[in-house]
Structures are given as C-alpha cells and as structure tokens.
C-alpha cells in the first residue's frame, strides 16, 4: 500500500463567495479504502465531485496515478473538458440516486461505457459486464430494465457500471443514503467485497459501522477542512478532537443491545 493512486493538494472549492472546501490535502493509496465522514454541508460530496471533475476545483492540484490533472497557467489550474473526459474514465463514481440509464437494460447500462467510450468489442464488453454483475451478485437481472429492480439492486448495477470501466479508483457518494433500510445491507456487503478484493475506494458515507469494519482510514471533514483523520478504531472509537466527538455522539445517541448472531449471519451481514 505504498503506491499513490490519488493525491489531492490544497484543494479549494468556492461557489461564488461561499467557500465549501478550504484547502484539502488527501492521498489515497492503491488498494486502500478511505471513508469520508462529516456533517451535511461539511464538503464531503463536493470533495468527491472535484475528484472526477463534476465540479471544477477553484484552487489546488489533483494527481491521478501520479499525473497532475489539468495545466498550470498563472498559478491556477486550467482544465480542458476533453481531457477531463479521459480522466473520468479512470475514476468510477457511484451516486446516491443510482442514476442508472432507464432506457437501457442492466447489461446495456454496464456495457455502454466500455463499448462507446473505450471502443471495446461488444462480445468482450458483455463478458466483462457479466463478470462485474456477478461480483455485485446481480447477474440474474442482466436483461431487466432498471425500473424492474429494487433500489438496492439498482445501486449494485450502478457499482458494476462504474467497475466495468476498470477505474483506478472508485468514488461512492452516499451510495446507501437513498435506500430503504432493509436494502442498505446488500449494497454495503457488495462494497465490502470490493474493498477486500483490493479496489481503491474513496467512500462518502454515514454508515459508521461500514467505515469501522471496512475502511483503512477514516477522514472527518468539518466546515471544508480535514479536521481529524486516522484508522477507524481511533477516529470512530476514541476521537481526540471536540467536533469529531460531537458528531459521533449525535450518531450514537440511541443504541440497541447487540443481537445474538449466529456465526453464519455475522459473516454475511
């Protein structure tokens, strides 16, 4: 875990006078899973959107696989949309609202990127799509349309769609926040499997249990800065700084006693 996949330096993002990100430095190594947590409005999603340039950074540098994205001109970075399209093909994104293409079948959703953007022969693309769909456990729905699937199934297809581009890093923008509670588990299980397979992941989430069990590192954002970061066992269990402590207290205000679980149930979540 030494090789850097993503490096963010001094990232700032402002909407007019409102500065949402106030200088973020963050590095993600190959095979690492980093969870971004923080209150709403702390800039988690904005940070994620800057990484694949759905929003342009106001200031700062982003390196992907060691290469600086954009060109420097007069102390600022200049970005060309055509170059950014190429960058985005190496950055997989999973949205809160799934955003599957409703007019395409599950299989077509997963193959359209490789076929149209990469020029992969359809036969090869279909083979790889099947592989990714199997990975997220939804291969049996390949011929269905998104409207025929549950939210959790749709989100797993969205994950497969992003994986099919074979990205360097996967970004998850609150991937389970729009799901009914009983569907959250299946998506988190699929995400954990990816993490265990060595996928490099940057995950914005409110699922602290997921962060605790899966993340190598947890980053707590507060008002556009990295307020505290470290291994999940530290940040989520023994946070040192007051805002992190407040945040976690809010998340764990109500607790249930742990149910007795059979070993099989414990393994599969």
């Amino acid at each position: 875990m030494t090789e850097e996949v993503l490096r963010i330096e001094g990232l700032r993002k402002a909407y007019g006078l409102l500065e949402v990100l106030k200088g973020i430095d963050l590095t993600v190594h190959r095979g690492e899973t980093v969870c971004l947590i923080g209150a709403s409005g702390s800039g988690k999603s904005t940070l994620l959107r800057c990484v694949n340039f759905l929003g342009y950074p106001t200031e700062g540098r982003i390196y992907l696989e060691g290469r600086l994205i954009g060109r420097e001109s007069g102390g600022k970075m200049a970005y060309r949309e055509s170059k950014l399209c190429a960058v985005r093909t190496h950055v997989g994104m999973v949205f809160q609202q799934f955003n599957l293409f409703p007019h395409l079948t599950v299989e077509e959703n997963v193959t359209i990127g490789p076929i149209k953007i990469r020029g992969v022969p359809p036969a090869v693309a279909h083979e790889k799509a099947a592989e990714q769909l199997r990975r997220v456990g939804i291969l049996d729905k390949a011929k269905d349309y998104p409207s025929q699937l549950s939210g959790g199934q749709q989100q797993r297809v969205a994950i497969a769609r992003a994986l099919a581009m074979e990205p360097s890093i996967m970004l998850f923008d609150e991937a389970t926040s729009a799901l009914d509670p009983e569907l959250v588990g299946e998506v988190l299980v699929a995400m954990r499997k990816l993490a265990e397979d060595g996928t490099t992941m940057l995950v914005v989430t409110h699922e602290l249990g997921f962060a605790y069990n899966v993340a190598h590192r947890v980053v707590f954002l507060h008002e556009g800065t990295i307020y505290e970061e470290g291994p999940p066992q530290e940040i989520l269990v023994r946070p040192r700084r007051p805002r992190t402590q407040d945040f976690l207290r809010g998340h764990t205000a109500f607790r249930m006693p742990e149910p007795e679980m059979t070993p099989a149930a414990a393994v599969d979540g």
């Binding site: 759905l54 399209c85 093909t89 950055v91 994104m93 007019h103 769609r161």
Partner: peptide, 30 residues
C-alpha cells in the same frame, strides 16, 4: 431529463455529444 442522467454519463467519461446521443436524446424522444 434529470441532471442525474447527465452527471452519470459525464462521470462515465462520455463527451458531450455522446451524452446527448446515447443517454439523453433517447430518453427525451420517448
């Protein structure tokens, strides 16, 4: 067509014309 569709196509790395042709126009046409 919702902005989410544009964003998803953009996030895949599709250039503008491709987004229109394969994602947005087919849905709008329906």
């Amino acid at each position: 067509i919702s902005t989410g569709q544009w964003e998803a196509a953009r996030a895949l790395g599709m250039p503008g014309t491709m987004r229109l042709r394969y994602i947005i126009l087919p849905q709008a046409a329906r």
